[in-house]
Design a protein around this nucleic acid. Sequence first.
DNA 1: TAGCAGACTATACACGCGTATAACGTGCCG
DNA 2: CGGCACGTTATACGCGTGTATAGTCTGCTA
Lengths: 225, 225
Amino acid sequence: MYSLLYVRSAVDDLTARARIRDAAINAFAATGFDATVRQIAARAGVSAGLITHHFGSKEALREECDAEVLRQILALKVEGIGMAPGESVARIAQLGDYGPAFGYMLRSLRDGGESGRIFLQNMIDDARDYTAAAVKSGMVLPSRDEDARVELLVTQSVGGMLLQLSLRGQTDFSNGAELIRSLTGSTSFALLELYTQGLLTDSSILDAFVDQTAQSNHEPLKKQK
Amino acid sequence: MYSLLYVRSAVDDLTARARIRDAAINAFAATGFDATVRQIAARAGVSAGLITHHFGSKEALREECDAEVLRQILALKVEGIGMAPGESVARIAQLGDYGPAFGYMLRSLRDGGESGRIFLQNMIDDARDYTAAAVKSGMVLPSRDEDARVELLVTQSVGGMLLQLSLRGQTDFSNGAELIRSLTGSTSFALLELYTQGLLTDSSILDAFVDQTAQSNHEPLKKQK
DNA sequence: TAGCAGACTATACACGCGTATAACGTGCCG
DNA sequence: CGGCACGTTATACGCGTGTATAGTCTGCTA
């Protein structure tokens, strides 16, 4: 009945059910997942009871928001997250209507729940392919443990964003453009510099670590297949 | 009125007041800051009313927990966070009684509030000195923007930890040793490898970024509807 | 010994939450 | 036209929360 294609944030011609869901995504992104059913209802311009009527429970509404946000995020394939900051930021910056979805995802990642874990796993899987391609093209150095590196890169990049936002006092996650503005500061340069030149002057620490873990075979390094 | 009498020392164990505060730190670390006053009371083996009697309000209790945790954390100076993982992890691993404090701090950092911001700023300030020393000693390469780099390193390291914990389904933050065990996996090697060799094969992307930002005095990325 | 300060408890209160219930309006179909 | 399905609202219920109140117990001091 209703097309999946229109993404306009118009308040008018959407069916009340979709309006409630979008209002919930906005509310969750703006004030966190302890946003009240009544707050969401007010945002959507309906009564609180209607939410229960349409979704059954707040938890069910939350799940539907998760699904919708995941769908939107997957739709714009944020692949190079933390890989080529200029490029990925440019992508996210033009997300427009997806802004609240982006904030919603950050919120999920922050509160450590199951849906955040899914978002994160999704990014890691994406980044794995993307990194492999970048290695093959000669842009990125190979790693002795590609899986661990990609997990590290994604968790650090995304986790870093979260803490940068908190450091800058950004508490409202509903405005995607504003989030990006908060994040694209001196961070971009420092990130590129780190990725280009590394941090340590020589490999002595790395070598010592490898020797140490090789000696006691507690944590053997798994090689790339 | 009678505050000075009780607040003076933290080592006053066995007093119910200290027991409540420790129980609160444990409860907050274990289940988050929405832990109930009654849950904390049960943990401390006292009635709920006694908490109000001693601290006045839940918020005041929270503040006292913040102060106590900050005191403990500062006491063991986790300086090289994310710098030399083997060393810093070894430090944290032996924190013993400070385990809950470590988890409490992670919890604060995760939920994005003011006290988390303070913890973070504290780490950044510590890391700034530590990094400067490491650069001077020749262990770490200099950066063209030391402040931005240290901010990046700390936020990414700590934020990365948070997401690693969430990725591994670690929801209880009260057991410091268990947290460390969750974090010291393949991550250590990947981190050292990244810090040793970097990520990119050459500096072309960095150079392009520098040129671009030098050309336009402000970021040209802005797209909104 | 009397008395009182203060640690401590049991109970109660007000409030906000998610949700259930009943009624109302409106459009569709026989 | 009658009936009914359903979107929608207003109201209320039960519960858990933080906190206020009043009372009990205990140890110190005069």
